[in-house]
Every structure is written in C-alpha cells, then in structure tokens.
Design a protein around this nucleic acid. Sequence first.
DNA 1: CGCTCCTAACC
DNA 2: AGGTTAGGAGCGA
Length: 974
Amino acid sequence: MQKGDHLVLVDGSAYIFRAYHALPPLTRKSDGLPVGAVSGFCNMLWKLVEESRDTSVGVAPTHFAVIFDHSSTTFRNELYDQYKANREAPPEDLVPQFSLIREAVRAFDLPCIEKEGFEADDLIATYTRHALEAGGDVTIVSSDKDLMQLVGPCVILYDQMKDKRLGPEEVKEKFGVYPDKMIELQALVGDTSDNVPGVPGIGPKTAAQLLEEYGDLETLLARAPEIKQTKRRENLIAFAEQARLSRQLVTLDCATPLDTPLDDLFIHEPDGEKLIAFLKAMEFTTLTRRVAARLDTNAAEVETADITVEGPVRGPDRDPAPPAEPHGHGEALLPFTPAGLVESRKAAAAATFDRSAYVTIRDAATLQAWMSEAREAGVMAFDTETSSLSAMNCDLVGVSFATRAGRAAYLPLGHVSPAGAADLLSEGTVEDEIGPQLPLDDALAILKPPLEDASILKIGQNFKYDYLVLLQHGIAVEPFDDTMLISYALDASASLDGHGMDELSERFLGHKPVSYKELCGSGKSAKAIAACPIDKVTEYAAEDADVTLRLWHVLKPRLVAEGLASVYERLERPLVPVLARMEQRGIKTDRQILSRLSGRFAQKQAGLESEIAEMAGEAFNPGSPKQLGEILFGKLSLPGGKKTKSGQWSTDARVLEELAAEGHELPRRIVDWRQLSKLKGTYTDTLPAHMDDEGRIHTSYAMASTTTGRLSSSEPNLQNIPVRTEEGRAIRTAFVAPKGKKLVSADYSQIELRILAHIADIPQLKEAFREGLDIHAMTASEMFGLPVEGMDPMVRRRAKAINFGIIYGISAFGLANQLSIPREEAGLYIKRYFERFPGIRDYMDATKAFAKEHGYVETLFGRRAHYPDIRGPNPSVRAFNERAAINAPIQGTAADIIRRAMIRMEPALAAAGLSAKMLLQVHDELIFEVEEDEVEASLPVIKQVMEGAALPRVELTVPIEVDAKAADNWEEAH
DNA sequence: CGCTCCTAACC
DNA sequence: AGGTTAGGAGCGA
C-alpha cells in the first residue's frame, strides 16, 4: 500500500445482523434453506462494490476486505469474564447462514478475514493502523460506535444503510467529543449490550462534559474529589477501577497479528462467473440479473454453483488466487493476477533506472535462462525492435524483455555493421565487428513457447504492433496486456498528448527514457536501428521493456480501482488480435482502375487550370489559398471576403460556393479543381504506393487516438475514401474482391440517432425507429407540423441538419453555418426542436451537469471521456467542451457497439462454419471478403452479430438495424 | 527539414 | 457542430 491508496473495510458481522433483522425471513424455494440474511448481505455488498467504484462519492478503493468475528470468546473475556456474557445466542435460522455468507464473500472474490480470539473490530483497527502508516486512507463500513475511536483525518466511518459518512466533526457532533476521546467516553458510559460496566449514573452527555473539563479519564479520576455533585463524585471514586477496566475492554487492539497482510487486500477484478454461479445457487433472481448485466455475462450460460447447507466453514485466510487463465475469446472476466504482483508493484515504484544493468543476450542458453525467469515471474514485459515503423513490412532487428523492475535484457537478431558497406570490403565478418547474434530462427524457436504460454502474461506498449510483427513469424502471443490501452481506458483525453511510452513514462514514472532520436538521430543523418551499436540499442530497448513493465505495475491496478476493467477487458484488449488480423489481410486493390482515374483527373485538372488562368488574367497556383485569396479578393475585388484566424483571405469551399451561386465562374472552377486535386493527390496517386506484391493495401488502425473510443486509420487512411460525389465514389470501385470472392459491406443504419433516442429517451424518435419511418422527415413533420407524405426535400434537409447538430451538441452558430441561414433563424429552429423534444434538452442539461461534476462522461458501456476544461474559466473553451461532452456518450456508445461486434464476429463466423474475413472498419461499417458460395449464409450471421452487439450488457429500447450487401467492389457493395 | 496553416476527405 | 487523417503551401532555421 502506498500514499493515495484507499482501504475499505467492511464490518461483516455487523452486516449480517443488520441484514437479518431488517428483512423478513426468506428461504430458498427449492429446499427451504433460510437465506434471508445471505440475500440482504449480498445486496448490501453488491451495492457497496458498485458505489465504491463511483469516484464521485469518494476515492475508489485500492484495497478491500470483509472482516468477521471468529468466535464468541476473545482476549477480553480473560480481562473480564462477564464481557458480552448476556449476549443471546443467534437465532436458529441465522446459524446456517454464517457459513453461506462467508461463501458469498468468497464468491465476490473479496478477502474474508477473521481471527481466533479477536473481534472483527480489532482486526479493523489493526488494518487501519497499517494503512495509515503506509500513507493511505481508510473507509470503515459500519455504524458501530465502538469503531468511532478509529476515525481521524484519513479514516471515516460509512453507514451504508443510512448513507452517512462520519468524520471527526460528525463524531464530535454525535457524542460531544472528538474521536481521540471516544475510548475515555465509552469507559465512563459503559455499554449494556456488551456488558461493559462503565461508571453508574454517567451517560454520554455527562461523560462528554467531564472529559471537556478534565481532559482525560486518569485526570478525571484523580481529581474526582473536586466534583460538586455528590452522587457523581462518589461513583467516580467508587468505580474508578471499573472505569479503567472498561477502558481496557473498549480499547481496540491495533496490534493484532495478521494472517493476511495489508498488501494482500489489494483489489482485483472479480470473476463474474463465480459470483453469478453462487447467486444462482442461492436463487436470488433479481440480484443475479443485475450482476449479470453489469458484468456483461449471460447468466443462463453460467453453471449454478454447488452450495450445500453445510457449506464449508471458511478459515481465516482467503483461498489462493485461482489459476491464471488465458483471455482468448472467452466471455468471462477472468482475473489475471500473477503471484507476487504486490511485491513487484512496490519494487516498480521504488527502484531507479540503471541502464548499465541491462543485459545483451548473445546465445541460446542465456535466452533460455531469461525465459525461465519469465516463467517463474508469471509476467514479462516485451518489446520488438524492427527495421521500419510498418509492422506489415519490416524485419525483426531485436527483442527486449523485462522480468521485474530494473531487470531487463536485449536480444539482437538482425543487426548489421554500423559502417554498412564496410562489410563487403573488410577482411573480417560482421560477427567480428559487432559480436555474435543468435540466428533468428533459433531465437524464435526458443521464444515461441513462452510467448504462447498461458501462464506467462506478456506486457507490451502498443501491443498490436508487436503482435502483428510476431504473427508474421507464426507466433500468436497470448495472453497479454497493453499499457497503452490501459492508459487509454483510464483517460483518453486529447489534452494528455497521447499514450506513447515516453509520455506515459514521464507522466506516471517521472522518468524520461532514451528517445529513438537520441539513439538513431533524425532527418537525413538518421541511422537504421539495425546499424546502431548493440550496446546503445541494449540500453534503449531494454529500458523500453523495463519502463513498460513498471508502467503496467502502476496502471493495471487502477483499472479495477476506477471501475474501468471491463472497458479494457471487453472493448480494448480483445480487439488487438482482431485488428491485427484485419491489418494483416489487407484489402485487394485494382491498380489499373486507380491509374485510369488518375489520368482522367489529371486531364480534367489541366483543362480547368487553363480556364482558371484565363479568368484570373494570370497563371497562378490554384492550390495555394494565399495566391487564390489575393486574386479573388485583391485583384478581382469579389465581395464576401472573410479572413481566417491568421488574417489570410478565406477561400474554403463554402466561400467559393457562395461566390459561384452569385454567378462568378472562377470560384466554381477552383472548387472543381480542388476536388480533383484532392482525389488525385490523396487517393488515386497515393494508394498504389501502399499496395503489396499481391495488390493488397494494409491500413493501420490506431486504437488509442480518439477521445471517444472510435478507431482511426492511417497509412493509408481507409476510413475517408470518397463516397459523396460520383467522381469520388469511382475510387471505391478500385477496392475489389479477388476472383471467386465478393466484398460484403454491412453498416449500421442511423446508429447514433438511435442511441440518442435511447439515451435521451425520446418517445417520438423511438416510435419512429420502431415503425421504420424516415427519421429526418418525421423530425421535420414534428417541427413544422407538416405531413410526412410529400415532404419538401429542402425542409427535410434542414431537419436532417438539426438532427446531426443535436448529436454534435448543437449551437445556433453551428447550425446557421451549416445551413447558411442567419443565426437568429437557426436559434428559432433549435427552440422549436426543444419544444417538440423536451427530453433532448433534459439529456443535454443532465450530461453537462454530469460532466461538470465528474470531469468526464460515460458511454452505455462505461467508457469514459474526460473533459476537465468544462470547468475552466474561458467561456468559449467551456462551451466547446460542453458540446464535446454531449456528443461523446453517443459517438462513444456507437464505437463500443461496433467494437463488440468485431470481437464477436470471428468466433461467430467460425461457429457457423464460414470463412468470411473481416477486412475494414469505417466507424459504422464493416467490410468483409467472402467466398462467393458463402455469401448467402454469411450475410445473416454478420447482421445478427452486429445487431445484437450491445447485448447482454445493454438492452437498447430502439431497434438496431444493419444493411448488408455483397458485390464485386466496395462502391457497389456499399 | 520541420513546423503551422489551410483545405478537404470520411463517419 | 462532434470525431478523425492527409496533402500542399509557406515560412523560418
């Protein structure tokens, strides 16, 4: 435990009795087993776990335990045989529930702590002391006044049922003394229920008053003769010893020997299946459903646990962690907490970086030894060094490993002599010059087993890259974690400046690693990494693995603590192999079509260029906004000149279109020229350069580049291939299926508007989607009171713009801009819209309020988008953040849904015996390559997976529809 | 050569 | 008006 950590201790025994007494008796239907207290206990614990993840309530816990009384006799009985002597035996129907409740805690995967001879309160006191010494905060979940003595600046008492939190001030208010005097107060007052005698005639009010006056118990007893009130004086003198005994009895033992050290209370992701199996066995249908939905698990598929009436009584220690399991396509959230995590976490935070300690691996035996170390540790950070940045087209230069903080090595595999050509000229071999390197094939043969070993967790940074590199060598690395994706799940803010390793290292470790530039240089003088000195590369590469491992130690625990484990485990990590395979496959492209289009575009452009020069009266570069602005608004003095931020004439398409509408021919030509220039320069000329030997283009998907959870595509970007204009669309005909296959395009219809209708709960929108109506025409009809039949296309267009505007966090300024209408008119439209759909305004207000309170918003699947500046002082920055915050849950939920579909797609197709291959994702569209004779069978599977992708976690109240079509090329399939 | 600006392609 | 990537021009070192 370290500073900033947060320990939650649940007073389990108190919970049991409260649950038992607060609820009517309940028995298990199938056999009459009494389970009322178990049910109440489980409900309370579940709520607590849920609440504690809501960071708005307080700091999310990093450590968590449920503490029980072990038996009725404790060390206090030796002090005083009457202690708790008049306690009645627990009710008969509660007795069998004690062991069930311990089972329940185990099912929640929480440590269940108790100790012979000690009360729960003593254990709570001891853990609290340990936590405080480590610099942590503590929340004790209980309302027992015996625990108030523990309250302090970093310790609060939380009464879950009354939802009350007690700090020092609240204790003072309640008892008239601060927590540090609680023991003395209890010693005076006594406790009838526990048989703590106290001093007769002294109640809480008097006790508080006396302590206020005399300071502490001993002073009070010593000066008792001074007290005026006869009876009070006599009692204090007569019962002084009894008061001292009482003080001993109520003083909690904060030095209880602990069987489970504090650090072992470290929280980890629960095993959803285990919990659901238990709840099903108890026949708690409501809670089972609730838990299953939250954990995104289908309860029907979980086998009911075998819980007998005489369930095993839990010992004081928790069970050993379940065996580590690989996380393939499985649906359950399996914990992966290798042994020794806690130790390594501490080491990661403490150790400093020593580059000279890194090892260069030059032979098989040393490599084998490192892999043994990894096997023992159960964890290995791992990084590949390659000859280029493109995973699909690079050679492996080396691999680095780290097995614990500070212990890292580099394995050179493809290094060449730094001098390059000198190899050929010099007498000696490369080996003489740079030392021996293990042959690549030998190294891969040694590496393959541990990299695919289910009991070794491989940790990478931007792991899709390394995964893809090794996939080219026939190695599918599993299981793995990715520090970049963990960081992204925790906080995807754009303001963070990315999730690259160097940034993360500086942000979370306060360490600046050797940069690639420092190693290889930059610009013209940049060297290939393979030509850099191996000792320097060892420092660089091994450090990367070391940093990655340490980042993992710091970041991974935060996932669970902040309630983001399911985002990472459901939406991020499983997508890595899926995207890697998509990138590896690539999409077949017809070079000839692109080249013909380039020719056609060039010809048209040339024609336009001469016309443009003639109209302008001089030759200039139409691609230069600066020159163009000077011609249009300077030389020709056309009206409507606007300036950009930096004072240049604005010449964007909007400005030029407006001029063209007024009859000016030159701007029209420029618009056309620009379009051709874009299509040619960005697409038809450039795409062929990305084709491989088989004529396929492999894009690269960035998983952590957007603030909302969308993917992005680059090198080349295949998510912005033209579609709007006919000429642009022609480019899509170049994306083709090979002979004997078809391309299938499947896209979600209006998914963001559907999500809006669901989230904001808009009856008319939901109804329209259920009826399959034209949503924009319906909107126009609602707003302007016109029938949908025979709707003016221009009116519909406005309604459509407003619908999109709503998704984007509408402003009168933006809508006016979009529709080229006065701002006042746009304002009226918005007003009208809100009148017709008041739920939208409610949603927007609620989202803004949430974002202001928490600093982030959430998708339906729990992904967060952070907007800290929404609280900032700059009104326009604030407004921008408000709009983004309104958009993010909608755009982000859509992104989550298609991610879920992609993750499920391959197993679903395989299960149906189909060989369809997913190639591309374009935000709401998936593109597949399908054997011609499998098209018919594949379409319904693809549709089903996409349409059902939100389930079971989220049940949308609008239908989700997917249109899917097969054709020979992308243009026709779309 | 590397950066910013402007523009435009997509959902 | 929300979320992206990319290319060319222009400028300064």
